[in-house]
C-alpha cells in the first residue's frame, strides 16, 4: 500500500511519519502531484496558521489537486480545518470540501484547547470513541458531517467525513494506542 503525507512545510509531519512506521507503514513525504494522485491513502497534516498554510498550498498548486483526489484523504488538525470552506483565522478561504465555517473558540475558557479530551462517536465503526490529544484554538462546528463529537467551551466536531474525505481535529499520531487504532482503521478503508 502506498501512503503519502502531503509535504507543505506545515510542521509535525515527522511525528505522523514515525507513528505510521510504528504501525508498520512507511509513508512518503511529498508535494509531487503525480505521487499524491497515485497513492492509495493520503494524509494531509497541518500545524500553524490557516492563511500561511493556504498560501503555501496555492504556491504548490495543491489547492486544486487536493479537492480532486478520489482515494481516502485524512486531514489532521489544521489539515482538517483547511478542508472546510472558510476559516475565521485570518478570514481565510479554504478548500471547500466540507461546507463549514471554521470558528475561533469563545473567550469564556482557556484557548488553545490543549490536552486530552474525550470524543464521542456518532459513527463508531469508522473511528473509535475515546481519549485523544487536542491542540487548537479554532474549531469546526457540529454538523451532519460529524463522526466524532467533543465538548470544550462549546460542542464541536472532533472528526468529520464526506465521501472519500476524512478529518480529525486531534492528533492521532500523539494520542497513544487509541490514535494508532484510528490510523490503522483509516489505512484499512
Amino acid at each position: 500500500m502506498k501512503v503519502v503525507i502531503i509535504d507543505y512545510g506545515a510542521g509535525n509531519t515527522r511525528s505522523v511519519q514515525l507513528t505510521l512506521e510504528r504501525i508498520g507503514i512507511h509513508a512518503r513525504l511529498t508535494d509531487e502531484a503525480d505521487e499524491i494522485r497515485a497513492a492509495d491513502k493520503v494524509i494531509f497534516p497541518g500545524v500553524g496558521h490557516a492563511r500561511s498554510a493556504m498560501d503555501v498550498l496555492r504556491d504548490k498548486k495543491l489547492d486544486t489537486l487536493i479537492p480532486s483526489l478520489r482515494q481516502p484523504v485524512l486531514g489532521i488538525c489544521l489539515g482538517m480545518q483547511l478542508l472546510c470552506t472558510q476559516s475565521e483565522e485570518g478570514d481565510t478561504p479554504c478548500l471547500g470540501i466540507f461546507d463549514e465555517q471554521v470558528k475561533l473558540f469563545p473567550a469564556s475558557g482557556k484557548v488553545p484547547h490543549m490536552g486530552w479530551n474525550t470524543a464521542t462517536a456518532s459513527d463508531a465503526a469508522l473511528f473509535p470513541a475515546g481519549w485523544y490529544y487536542f491542540v487548537h484554538s479554532y474549531y469546526v462546528p457540529l454538523s451532519s458531517y460529524t463522526v466524532l463529537g467533543c465538548d470544550y467551551i462549546t460542542g464541536f466536531a472532533a472528526a468529520i467525513h464526506r465521501d472519500n474525505f476524512y478529518g480529525v481535529q486531534f492528533h492521532p499520531e500523539k494520542s497513544g494506542k487509541t490514535g494508532e487504532v484510528l490510523l490503522t482503521n483509516f489505512l484499512k478503508l
Binding site: 515527522r14 511525528s15 490529544y133 492528533h171 500523539k174 494520542s175
Partner: peptide, 8 residues
C-alpha cells in the same frame, strides 16, 4: 524518543 513514544 519520537520513534518510540506515542504521546506528546
Amino acid at each position: 524518543v519520537a520513534a518510540e513514544v506515542n504521546i506528546p
